[in-house]
Simulated assay, not measured.
Amino acid sequence: MDLKEIMQENIFVVIGDTTNKEKYACKIKEGLIEHGYKVYAVGKELSSINEIPEDIDIVDLCINPIRGLELMKESKKQCKCVVIQPGAESEALLEYLEQNRIPYIQGCLLVGLRLYTKAE
C-alpha cells in the first residue's frame, strides 16, 4: 500500500500520546476524525490493540519504537498496513513486521491528510 491507498481506508488505530495536543499522535488522531475516519487511540486511551472491538484497516505508530514493537508483538488483530511515523522506526520493528509479513510503510498521516481526500 502507498499513502494514497491508506487514506482511502476507514478504521485507523493511532498509537502514541493522543491526549497531549502538542504531540503528533494527538494531531493525527484529531485530523483523521475531522476528515471522517473512525479512529481508536492506543497508548494513553486504550492500553492494547486487542481492546479494539472491530476489524482494523490501518495502524499508525507514533510512539517510541521499543513500545511500538511491544504493542505490535502482543496484538492478535490483523490490519491491512502499518504506518511508521518518522522517529517511530527501528531495525527491530522493521524486522518483526517483515518476518510476520505485516505490510508497512514509513510515512506521515498528516501529509496523507493534506494530499489525499477520501473517496466518498
Rank of each mutant, 00 (worst) to 15 (best):
I33M: 13
S47M: 09
E45T: 15
Q8P: 03
I49M: 06
N50I: 11
F12A: 00
S75H: 11
K27M: 14
Y24D: 11
Y24V: 14
G36F: 05
I105G: 01
K80H: 04
G68P: 03
F12Y: 09
A41W: 06
D2R: 03
D60M: 08
K80R: 07
Y24K: 12
D60G: 05
Q78W: 13
V82F: 02
V111Q: 08
D17E: 05
P53I: 13
A25F: 08
V39I: 05
S47I: 10
S47C: 13
C79R: 00
D2G: 07
I105Y: 01
C62Y: 15
K27G: 08
Y116W: 14
L110D: 04
E91Q: 14
S47F: 02
L71K: 11
P65F: 11
L97I: 08
V59N: 00
T18V: 12
D60S: 14
V111F: 08
L93S: 02
V59R: 00
E5D: 15
L3H: 12
Y24T: 12
Y116D: 07
E22K: 12
D2C: 06
E34Q: 07
N64I: 15
K29S: 06
E34R: 09
A88I: 12
E22I: 13
A92K: 09
K44G: 01
A119I: 15
V13T: 03
I49H: 01
A41M: 12
V59G: 00
D17Y: 04
K23E: 15
D17F: 03
I56Q: 00
E89V: 14
Y40C: 03
I11L: 04
H35W: 09
G31I: 09
M72Q: 07
K4H: 12
Y96S: 12
E95P: 09
E54T: 01
E5M: 12
Q85C: 13
I6Y: 00
I49N: 02
L110G: 05
E30Y: 08
